[in-house]
Amino acid sequence: MMKGVHFLVTLALLALATSLASAYDPSPLQDFCVATNDANSAVFVNGKFCMDPAVVTANDFFFPGLNVAGNTGNKVGFNVTLVDVNKLPGLNTLGISLARLDFAPYGLNPPHTHPRATEILVVVEGTLYVGFVTSNPNKLFTKVLNKGDVFVFPIGLIHFQFNIGQTNALAFAGLSSQNPGVITIANAVFGSTPPINPDVLIKAFQLDKNVVDYLQKQF
């Protein structure tokens, strides 16, 4: 009888441990969420409130216009049209988003990261040189992609796409978050608000102060 009780207790503890082990926090949908006990000063940002299903229409799952090329007339010759939960409400809670990437000849999507998403990219037109860098040790993986080729950039890793052709290039990317976020490395380092202390950047990048001042003015 006692052995039977011990068996049941052990079985219950194992079930509890399995339950706890399979539990996990949801992925964050913003850069930070500071806790507060004051409901009056709280805002709901980790996702969106859900619409009453009775008033939902097909338009809530629809976004037009990805056939229109983005404006690449900028310094890097690149434009991204992102369709996330803010543009397509039906994406809420589904964990996906989509982007159109337009490149002028020799246009660049500069090194950047998506803190909340893995990206899978397919080239529709043109030739792209793409790559990502792993965490320490910083190993670079690169590939030249042509029309119809697919490449994956793992979540959170620095990556880039560069049009190495003399014609425009077009790609589409799927991202594993309704709000993937983007941190463009140069913009974040040299263009933050307020700016990072130049002494930090001088030492980190081993640059002359004049170079750091110049770079901060560019962003």
Rank of each mutant, 00 (worst) to 15 (best):
G191Y: 02
K87I: 12
V83L: 13
H159A: 00
F103M: 04
G65F: 07
L8T: 09
V150S: 03
L145I: 12
K147W: 10
P194F: 04
F63K: 08
L201D: 01
K48A: 13
T18R: 08
Q206I: 09
N168E: 12
V200Q: 04
P111L: 09
N109C: 07
L128V: 11
S19E: 09
H159F: 05
F63Y: 11
V130R: 05
V123Q: 00
V144L: 06
F132H: 04
M51W: 10
P195W: 03
I158H: 11
N109W: 01
D213A: 10
L29M: 10
G47N: 11
H112M: 00
P194K: 01
L13Q: 08
A204G: 05
L13E: 07
G107I: 00
H6W: 14
N67Q: 14
D38F: 13
N179T: 15
V43D: 14
F132G: 02
F205H: 04
L175Q: 13
N146W: 07
L14K: 02
V200M: 06
S27W: 04
G181N: 00
T193A: 09
V56N: 04
F44W: 14
F141Y: 11
T18I: 14
D208V: 09
L14F: 01
A69W: 12
F172V: 03
L121S: 01
K75L: 12
P115V: 00
L128F: 12
Q218C: 10
V5K: 03
V85Q: 13
F44C: 15
Y106P: 11
L29K: 08
G4L: 09
T127E: 05
I96N: 06
I158E: 12
